[in-house]
Design a protein around this nucleic acid. Structure first.
Lengths: 189, 189
DNA sequence: ACCTGAACACCGTTCAAGT
DNA sequence: ACCTGAACACCGTTCAAGT
């Protein structure tokens, strides 16, 4: 939580502190006074580094955007795995991930900040293209791969961000789901 | 927006005004001063009706809960339709609905308010059971109906609440999706 | 170049006083 | 029974002054 303990603060120190606060306690805790406590300075100091609170939020968004892009790059490396395994890893990561709180806050934020909205969209589209690619490699025709990937990605978003009271799927249910989605196209009736 | 133009206010007038404000401008606009303007009274008046802002929020949540339950009851009447048609109507409603803003705010709120969380969960479970019922009537075995309904409902939540940059599905894609979900169980390979 | 500390506006909250 | 209006604390913001 502490920046370099000696010397004065940089704008990035403030942004990192803000992101940490956002992650730990939600957007309502990202206040100037609160950050001043955390960083051991007074409020006036903040305004040397930033125009106002919104400017800090933008910097925090930038940080998150950079980290998200890095995470996407790591995700892209799954391309080396065979498609079924790739889907399994992505599913596992979805149900595992503990830091959905930040993602939720950011997705919320995306409604009022175009830059954040852009990276959220970029992220969603990237995941969609990966899932679509996996289905294509499994032999599904393009249109079908696209639809199935869309449903699955939306379900992932709903699962991670809905905070709903629905029960978490069991391992058996996940297996059934993968079977449904990787099944060959059924004849139309 | 105006309550009964004559006479004094009731707690419900405040709550209705608050819900309207929440719907129109988001949770950050639900402030005492803002509501006072809207209702034509001064701030002190508010505290005759409510303990504090949280009490107002709770009352707003109650209102939303009641309205949501009423909406669920109307939704239940779709039971009379044949299952395929029922699913089509629900899908249409999902892509149509314009007031997801309130739902998003409430789902967000559910994280800190148990009462709201309860009704969100109730609502999700109810929709899940309806979709599951439709799949059952189409001849799917129970476990399969449950899994497919789960994925579909999560996808609906993701679609409505993700505010993602993903493209809206076309009519053709919706049709393909319904075909995938209503297809008989494929033999395991 | 970076920070302090006083000042001000805005908002949530309290309360004595009004009708 | 319901509301006014003054008061106070908290927080975002400004700015002159310090190192």
């Amino acid at each position: 939580m502490q920046p370099q303990t000696k010397g004065r603060l940089s704008a990035e120190d403030w942004a990192r502190g803000g992101l940490a606060l956002l992650t730990a306690e939600g957007i309502t805790s990202v206040r100037i006074n609160r950050l001043c406590e955390e960083l051991g300075v007074t409020r006036g100091s903040f305004y040397w580094h930033f125009e106002d609170l919104d400017a800090l939020r933008e910097k925090i968004a930038d940080l998150w955007c950079a980290e998200t892009r890095a995470a996407l790059a790591r995700l892209a490396e799954l391309d080396r795995l065979p498609p079924r395994e790739r889907l399994a890893v992505m599913t596992l990561r979805l149900t595992d991930e503990s830091s959905w709180a930040v993602e939720r806050a950011l997705r919320d934020w995306a409604r009022t900040d175009d830059k954040v909205a852009g990276v959220v969209a970029e992220s969603d589209l990237f995941v969609l293209s990966m899932v679509e690619g996996a289905f294509s490699e499994l032999g599904l025709p393009p249109a079908e791969a696209r639809v199935r990937a869309g449903v699955l990605v939306y379900a992932g978003i709903g699962f991670a961000h809905g905070q709903s009271g629905l029960p978490k799927p069991t391992a058996d249910e996940v297996e059934r789901m993968v079977a449904l989605f990787t099944a060959p196209v059924s004849p139309t009736d």
